[in-house]
Amino acid sequence: MKPLGRINLPGLATLLAVLLLWEGFSRGSASLQLYFPPVSRILVSLYELIFSRELFGHLLATLGRFAAGYLLAAALAIFLGIILGYSRLAYSFAEPLIEFLRPMPSVAIIPVAILFLGIADAMMVAVTVYACAWPVLINTIDGVRNIDRTLLYTGRTFGLGRWQALRKIVLPGASPYIVTGLRISLAIALILVTTSEMVVGGSGLGYFILDEERSLRTGNMYAGIFVVALLGYGANRLFLLLEGRVIAWHRRMTAGETV
């Protein structure tokens, strides 16, 4: 994995080259410009949108749903994952349901959610929770199952109770798996939030992007896409920063450092 805080110059050059190509192509063809405005014009749109504060409200709406859905899903899935990882019996009850629902594209439940929850925030958050919970759940179950029995025996020989074992052995032992699930879910959360915003409308970046497209304000549309992309990038960066703190031991261990 790329170390944090170091600037990847070749990567940055690629990014700049793509933007320059984009600019050149767009300027070279007048007929294309409506659908594919030059980067410079998108940046101007973005600048104006930031100043008009129109985008800000949409960004806030998306951020709120994103955070609520993601955090709720994480809490729920870690909780359930520990139970299902601990208890073979509980898992055998849940297994067919998990195996059936997990591969289903989560966006397919948007219509169902609309039926039950209408087009309010609750619906978008519910859909996000549903979609984000799977990777965290599956990884938590795996993580708990993969804890070495010897570790649990060690805990018991030191007089550890069940609750203490959960806190001091199961959770830290499964944390590398849980974190993997959480990272996958981060991207999923943003996908589900923007998609449901496109479907139900009203507010949020997803709605904004679609609305600008329908009004043929493609500069604004691309500006909206840039903002969502930046949001995803920023969230991932923040996540890696936190991950580095929580499971630094694991990253160094798998890198194989020895004295």
Partner: peptide
């Protein structure tokens, strides 16, 4: 207290 043969499986890596 019991000390296990497999030290690498009984120490807490974290």
């Amino acid at each position: 207290v019991l000390v296990f043969q497999e030290y690498n499986r009984s120490l807490f890596a974290w």
